[in-house]
């Protein structure tokens, strides 16, 4: 593999890690918890996209885009529901209890998806109850416990840029990197300049002082979960398009990698998530191309984490932990 393709691949998979890491980092910054179910929201997003893109009612040229929107909305709602049902009553609980709950939610999502996909008659439910026919072109229902691929649903070869005989920038890479940049810019504008964004920063810094301003903490945290989970849906679709196969545990690996990216960048920091994600993606692709065995790639990734934390315990852009006066 030559250096250009390492850079292109690194930037694109890194962009996906960054989008996921933004969700981790926002939830950590504002709700002060690690939402380890975040990776599984990615998986739900990818499945939702997969099903929606196969819905006969969405056959037009805008079909895939509408499917993306459906995945985003559904994941945002899922994130809000998870926060409300699983985490809200644990606001004052020790962080270990929250962590265990998050792991529980993660397994719950994986197992529910496993069950739903292997149930008989899911397609009949969609057809009869929701009036949506979800099937392949040859009318074969797409539900089933088998491994899914979404590559043909997100074909972006028409956007490929051929730089030379041997070097092509894939359309998917261009879209992924562009989506990531748009998300980071929009999110920064949102957090810095909108009323809700400022309220989020206030809650992040001092929850009870924020309450004294009349800020509704619950609503702020709900919005945070909705945004993070909506981003997870986008990341899930891009991740599976990369391509990765879609199974109920698909979210675990990118979830963990993105969590590492968030920690490397400095958890709680939006630019940190971007830098951490890109760095991780690049290191991963580089080691994959130079190391003799690909199994060592993850070891390199974890080493980067350890090295960064040795020198900067709060991550590259993390705030110094300040003593309260």
């Amino acid at each position: 593999m030559d250096i250009m393709s390492v850079i292109i691949n690194g930037l694109s998979i890194g962009s996906i890690y960054a989008i996921i890491a933004l969700g981790y980092t926002m939830v950590y910054g504002i709700a002060k918890m690690l939402n380890f179910a975040h990776g599984d929201v990615i998986m739900v997003g990818a499945y939702t996209f997969f099903a929606a893109a196969h819905a006969r009612n969405l056959n037009g040229p805008a079909g895939p885009l509408i499917a993306v929107l459906i995945a985003i909305v559904l994941c945002a709602l899922l994130g809000m529901a998870i926060e409300f049902l699983a985490y809200r009553s644990l606001r004052q609980a020790p962080s270990l209890a929250v962590l265990i709950t998050a792991i529980g939610v993660s397994y719950l999502l994986q197992n529910v998806m496993q069950t739903v996909m292997s149930l008989d008659g899911v397609d009949r439910f969609f057809k009869n109850v929701l009036g949506v026919v979800i099937s392949e072109n040859n009318d074969k229902p797409i539900f089933g416990a088998d491994t899914k691929m979404i590559t043909d649903l997100v074909n972006m070869q028409s956007l490929d840029i051929h730089l030379s005989e041997t070097l092509t920038i894939p359309g998917l890479a261009i879209v992924t990197i562009a989506v990531n940049l748009v998300i980071v810019v929009l999110l920064s504008l949102f957090v810095n300049y909108t009323k809700m964004g400022k309220a989020m920063r206030s809650v992040s810094e001092d929850r009870s002082a924020a309450q004294l301003m009349g800020i509704n903490i619950n609503r702020t945290i709900t919005v945070t979960f909705a945004i993070g989970s909506a981003l997870a849906a986008i990341a899930g679709i891009l991740y599976c398009a990369f391509p990765h196969e879609l199974v109920p545990t698909t979210g675990s690996i990118p979830g963990i990698k993105a969590f590492i990216a968030a920690v490397i960048g400095g958890i709680g920091s939006i630019p940190g998530a971007l830098i951490g994600g890109l760095l991780l993606g690049f290191v991963e692709q580089l080691s994959r191309s130079v190391l003799p065995v690909t199994e060592l790639t993850d070891a390199v990734v974890y080493s980067v984490l350890i090295i960064v934390l040795l020198f900067r315990p709060t991550g590259l852009l993390g705030k110094k932990i300040r003593e309260k006066v």
Binding site: A199, R201, S202, E205, D206, A210, M213
Partner: peptide, 16 residues
């Protein structure tokens, strides 16, 4: 709010 600007602090005071 230490990390917000003076103006942003006042903005938050008027949140409601």
């Amino acid at each position: 709010f230490q990390q917000l600007t003076v103006r942003e602090n006042l903005d938050m005071g008027g949140y409601t």
